[in-house]
Amino acid sequence: MAREISYREALNETLRQEMERDQSVIVMGEDNSGGAGSPAGEQDAWGGVLGVTKGLYHQFPGRVLDTPISESAFVGAAIGAATRGQRPVAELMFIDFMGVCFDQIFNQAAKFRYMFGGKAVTPVVIRTMYGAGLRAAAQHSQSLYPLFTSIPGLKVAMPSNPYEAKGLLTQAIRDDDPVIFCEHKALYDSIGEVPEESYTIPFGEANIVREGDDVTIVALGRMVSVASEAADQLASSGVQADVLDPRTTSPLDTDTILESVENTGRLVVVDEATPRCNVATDISALVAKEAFGSLRAPIEMVTAPHTPVPFSDALEDMYIPDAQRVINAAKSVVEWER
């Protein structure tokens, strides 16, 4: 009750509880323990590059596997093991590295069930870190979840805080479909209330973060807290925002989004991904098609620019959508007149 832990701790606790609960849950990835093969050093030296898997190695002998830097092989191995009764959780250190293992994810895991006539079950989770903000530059900062979202056969979860992280990861591990689990690297130290007991958050149910009648703000992952900050400030100027966190981009809770827009008549989507073919464009198209009659203003999308993620803090801070941009977008749709 009222226990507060970090996003990182929530993920670690989830892995621990699911590994305790189910022998078939295994964890693998680069330095998921760390120190493998070192003649003098400590095994479990790292527990993953950001410490999410720390401590699991010794508690679960043989079930936390360090891998060579060889994403195709170990992501593929996780998928193969999933077809044979294991529930692997593979860590793709940065989502940017999908480039060197994408075939195994989108041609293999995603397609097995359909391609094999509904007879394959591939309960694999690929945990991966995304997002800008750590001055990690163009190849370690991207928000590539729209690519996974577009692929039938994959589910995509994007926890926005520690509570969501635990419930969504528990669901991901117990889910019988392949899940791409996107963790924002700037959220690992965020703190929030998390029950000690295990629980699941079903996929495809948006969280209504706050209620308001003036404008719907749909925000993804880390952008949920940005949108909430914006909504707090908007409220002080008399604009009440309905802030929605879809939680999963595939499946997407279209009903909650449409219901909200039918009430507010105005939509702002906040998506850290680059602006072409991202989740914001997807949601905007959905609303334009399904709730056109409710719209009282054009839809606004607050996204990154169509550029790689820059390195310099001066540039990166401009790159990432912030609360002020969300406020400006919300005000522009609220004040919009034909």
């Binding site: 170990f74 593929g76 191995a77 998928i79 193969g80 077809t83 294991q86 075939d103 195994q104 094999f116």
Partner: peptide, 25 residues
Amino acid sequence: MLGANGIVGGGPPLICGTALAAKQQ
């Protein structure tokens, strides 16, 4: 039988996984 595979080189990583599963089980 994990499938014929349209991707050249698609199978070997999967087999690492099935072998891992067999070993762990």
